[in-house]
Simulated scan of single mutants.
Amino acid sequence: MKLGISELFPGAGPRDGRWSMDAAQLIEEIGYHSVWLPEHVVFFPSYRSQYPYESGGAQEVHRMLGVHDPLVLASAIAATTTTLRIGTYVFVVPQRNPIVTARQVASVDQLSGGRFEFGVGVGWSEEEYTALDVPFERRGERMNEYLAAIRELWAEEELTSFSGEFVEFEPLYCFPKPAQPRLPIIVGGNSRATLERIVKYGDGWAGYSRTHEDIEVFTEKLSVAMEAAGRDMSELSLKVGRRSKGTTEKDWEDDRAYIEEAFRLGIDEVVVSPRIGDDDYEKKMRRYAEIVGL
């Protein structure tokens, strides 16, 4: 089974890049399939924006306070591992210039030997958009256009041009190209817009904090939409994120039950965020793998 690890950083204190690289080597050795890196460019003491995934709100977000830039960390992990898939869960596409993003992601894919997966999302924090001087309104439309431009920039043709509402550029050279013939774009979210974005631009789905009923309903709708567009579900990699509810082995047994049912429903990979601090990290990660049946 494919099991990924998300939120690869110490449980408390300053973020240490060496720690993250060592942890990535460990989870590769244990047998996890992938590592997934979250993104927030900046954080705030409190939020007016509603955190959409957990009841903890800003408290949950602050667990990631000080996280490294995901593409920079992905490059470091690529240099210290050999088989581990590396991805973003998720990269907030509308906040960055798409030409720069295309080049950075392609560079990571080259440096990793074609092991990168581009998990993408629109984000939820208006405060973050404001700080970056990017309009929060119509971020979905902006993201769609950016993804289209990025695909063009990754194409085999040397010269690329694009003309849209949010991005426009005359013929230019953008290198490197990705190592993979089609670098996977894994679309995060749970909305109707997410579903449409997967069908038009995506190679997979990155759901998060979904019940089994949610998964079943969403994938059924996705299957219908894919068929209507002349695409097959076999073209997609379906992933769901699961954050452990606690730190005990009983909590991890609950994770196992969730994972088993997710696979039964057709999910290809479950990306888990076990609540494990940096104390006895190796011992706990190995025990977690045993309990969830890796």
Rank of each mutant, 00 (worst) to 15 (best):
S125L: 12
G241K: 00
E156Y: 13
A257K: 11
R63A: 11
R115T: 12
E213T: 13
R286E: 05
P45G: 06
V42Q: 07
E253R: 12
A12D: 08
E29A: 14
T83K: 14
R286L: 07
M226A: 15
L8P: 00
S107T: 15
L222R: 02
V292Q: 06
N144K: 14
S34R: 01
K221Q: 15
A131S: 15
P171C: 15
I215Q: 04
Y288H: 04
F162I: 08
A12S: 14
L73Y: 05
A131M: 11
Q180W: 04
G266C: 00
W252Y: 04
I185S: 01
E216N: 10
Y53G: 03
E227A: 14
A12N: 08
G113Y: 07
H212W: 15
M226I: 06
F175W: 12
L172Q: 15
A206V: 05
E165S: 11
D255R: 03
W19Q: 06
V120F: 01
H40C: 02
T247G: 04
L236F: 02
Y32L: 12
G121I: 11
R256N: 06
Y32Q: 09
L236E: 00
D268C: 00
Y32K: 03
I30Y: 12
Y201C: 13
R231Y: 03
P52K: 08
Q104I: 13
E168W: 10
A228N: 09
V67W: 00
Y173D: 11
R264P: 01
H40L: 02
V93E: 05
K245H: 11
N144V: 09
L183M: 12
G4E: 02
I5A: 06
L236A: 02
P14N: 04
S112A: 14
Y281M: 07
L236Q: 00
R15M: 06
V134D: 07
L236D: 01
I267L: 03
V100R: 09
L37P: 00
G11I: 02
L195N: 02
M285W: 00
I86L: 09
P178N: 11
D278N: 03
A155Y: 10
E137V: 12
V217Y: 13
L71F: 11
D69N: 12
E227I: 08
T194A: 06
F169M: 10
E117R: 09
R243W: 06
G164R: 07
L265K: 02
P45D: 13
P38C: 05
E261G: 03
L132F: 06
F91S: 05
Y201Q: 13
F91M: 08
V292M: 10
E165Y: 07
F263N: 02
G114F: 06
I198P: 01
F118N: 07
V105D: 02
L147P: 07
E227S: 10
V199A: 07
P14K: 05
S49F: 02
R96C: 09
I185N: 00
L26Q: 09
E7C: 11
G207I: 05
D203F: 01
G17I: 15
V240D: 00
Y208N: 10
E60I: 12
I150C: 09
V67E: 10
A228F: 05
S75K: 09
